[in-house]
């Protein structure tokens, strides 16, 4: 494996982690949006506060890593993406600011009205942001970002593949978050909530599966290079993702959400990994390969060293935080002390 390939692999690992952790985070916002009025939705919203409160900022650092890896490892690809896909990036940025700030403000809301206003901002921004991020992925994967100059700024994100990827991103985030929240509710012993979330998550899973099936002809016609990869090198990953998605549904249906959440996260990770494998060796599909786009070797080596450092310095405390959050030793469900 060449140095640029290694950097691309690490970068894509960050994309996968962002899809799982950031995705669960965005998806929680969708459940917040659909939880109902203040009284009816209160248990769900408290559960969401509890589930993502301690971890949401950390969940979004993966995105920063992806961007830094892109501009350091593949500077020309980064500036090409930013030139051509500027509009969905601005919209996603707006969504990230709105949902993060509103979520933080809601936690310490002085009044119910405040909580409702900030809650609606948080939840609706959570719904649309993964869509915009998905359209960015679709623009790159369907070969609409030229290596030099600026592509068609509208068509680059308003095209069949982008719209599919946007809808799929939102649906996947929602489904994943639904499974995680169901598991959380079960662990905390809120049985009414478990039943409700389980039912809704199953519906969400069915919708996600339908989107995937509907997407196959779209990809075949609109993104031949990606489709070739998905049916070729990436087929095991794509098939594995589908299988994991089905197992998630089965486990959820049988009332084992703790198991379902692991398979659900696996399904998301595999589908994103499948995209990466299908797209390789292109960093901008049909336009620029990983090795062509690679920046200076010293910078790439620096990135790999930094990734090693991150693995040692960041992963253990991250796992500690996630374990604490999961074991209820941090969070807001008991006493907000």
């Amino acid at each position: 494996m060449s140095v640029p390939d290694a950097v691309a692999a690490v970068m894509f690992a960050a994309v996968i982690l962002y899809s799982v952790f950031g995705g669960a985070d965005f998806g929680s916002g969708v459940w917040d949006l659909t939880a109902g009025n203040a009284r009816k939705g209160a248990p769900t919203r408290r559960l969401i506060d509890h589930a993502i409160g301690p971890v949401w900022e950390a969940n979004h650092v993966w995105l920063i890593f992806v961007l830094v890896f892109l501009w350091t490892g593949f500077p020309s690809a980064f500036s090409a993406i930013m030139r051509t896909l500027a509009i969905p990036f601005w919209l996603a940025g707006l969504g990230i600011v709105a949902r993060g700030a509103a979520f933080a403000f809601r936690k310490y809301s002085p009044t119910l009205r405040w909580a409702q206003v900030t809650g609606v901002i948080f939840a609706s921004a959570s719904l649309v942001t993964p869509f915009f991020l998905g359209t960015i992925a679709g623009g790159i994967a369907s070969g609409r970002v030229p290596a030099t100059g600026t592509g068609d700024k509208q068509e680059a994100w308003l095209n069949p593949t982008s719209l599919l990827a946007g809808v799929l991103a939102t649906a996947t985030c929602t489904y994943l978050a639904g499974v995680l929240l169901t598991a959380d509710a079960e662990r905390l012993g809120y049985h009414d909530l478990v039943a409700e979330l389980r039912r809704k998550s199953l519906i969400g899973g069915a919708i996600t599966g339908a989107v995937v099936l509907a997407g196959i002809p779209i990809l075949l016609t609109d993104s031949p290079t990606l489709a070739d990869g998905l049916l070729g090198r990436a087929l095991p990953l794509a098939a594995g993702s589908g299988l994991a998605g089905v197992i998630t549904m089965v486990e959820l249906y049988r009332g084992r959400p703790r198991r379902a959440r692991i398979v659900a996260a696996l399904a998301v990770a595999l589908v994103v990994a499948g995209w990466g494998a299908a797209q390789y060796p292109w960093v901008l599909v049909d336009q620029l390969t990983v090795s062509e786009a690679a920046g200076a070797n010293a910078a790439l080596v620096g990135l790999l060293v930094a990734s090693g450092l991150a693995a040692v310095l960041v992963l253990p405390p991250l796992i500690y935080l996630l374990t604490l959050a999961d074991s209820n030793r941090v969070g807001t469900a008991t006493v907000d002390g």
Binding site: V61, F65, W71, T72, P75, S307, L313
Partner: peptide, 27 residues
């Protein structure tokens, strides 16, 4: 981008560390 990128990568790691430990501390 590649000249200054390492600094941003290390900043990213720092920010991550900050986010994680602040999560642990505040909660």
């Amino acid at each position: 981008g590649d000249v200054v990128g390492l600094a941003f990568a290390l900043e990213g790691i720092s920010f991550f560390t900050e986010a994680i430990f602040l999560g642990i501390y505040v909660y």
